[in-house]
Amino acid sequence: MATEIEPEEYAKMAIIRAERVDDAYQIQRLHSAAFGDYGKTVNALVEELRPTIAEQGGFSAAAENDSGVVGHVMLTTSLLDSERRLAPAPVLGPLAVDPHHQGSGIGAGLMQWAIEAATEARSPFILLEGDPGYYSRFGFRPAGPLGFRKPSLRIPDAAFQILLLPDYEAWMTGTIVYAWPFWANDAVGLRS
Score class of each variant (00 low, 15 high):
6 E>Q: 15
10 Y>V: 03
11 A>N: 12
13 M>T: 10
13 M>R: 14
14 A>C: 10
15 I>Y: 04
19 E>T: 11
19 E>P: 04
20 R>A: 14
20 R>G: 09
20 R>D: 10
21 V>N: 03
22 D>L: 10
22 D>Q: 12
23 D>M: 02
24 A>V: 08
26 Q>E: 15
28 Q>E: 14
30 L>Q: 07
32 S>P: 06
35 F>N: 08
35 F>S: 00
36 G>A: 05
40 K>R: 14
41 T>K: 15
43 N>W: 03
44 A>I: 09
44 A>R: 14
44 A>H: 14
45 L>Y: 02
47 E>L: 10
48 E>R: 13
49 L>P: 10
52 T>K: 12
52 T>C: 09
52 T>E: 11
52 T>H: 09
54 A>H: 14
54 A>M: 12
56 Q>K: 15
56 Q>E: 13
59 F>P: 03
61 A>C: 09
64 E>F: 00
64 E>R: 03
68 G>A: 07
69 V>I: 14
70 V>A: 08
71 G>N: 01
72 H>V: 02
79 L>D: 12
81 D>T: 01
82 S>A: 13
85 R>M: 11
86 L>F: 12
92 L>W: 06
94 P>M: 02
95 L>Y: 04
95 L>A: 00
97 V>K: 01
99 P>T: 12
104 S>W: 02
104 S>E: 04
104 S>K: 03
105 G>Y: 01
106 I>T: 03
111 M>D: 04
113 W>Y: 15
113 W>G: 01
118 A>I: 00
119 T>C: 10
120 E>V: 08
121 A>D: 13
124 P>Y: 04
126 I>W: 04
126 I>S: 06
128 L>V: 04
130 G>Q: 07
130 G>T: 03
132 P>V: 07
133 G>W: 05
137 R>I: 05
138 F>H: 01
140 F>C: 06
145 P>L: 09
146 L>R: 09
153 L>K: 13
154 R>Y: 09
155 I>H: 06
156 P>V: 08
158 A>Y: 05
159 A>T: 00
163 L>K: 15
165 L>Y: 09
166 P>H: 08
167 D>A: 11
168 Y>R: 01
168 Y>N: 10
174 G>Q: 01
177 V>L: 12
179 A>V: 05
180 W>Y: 07
180 W>M: 02
182 F>R: 02
182 F>L: 08
182 F>T: 03
183 W>R: 12
184 A>I: 04
185 N>V: 08
187 A>Y: 15
188 V>Q: 13
191 R>V: 12
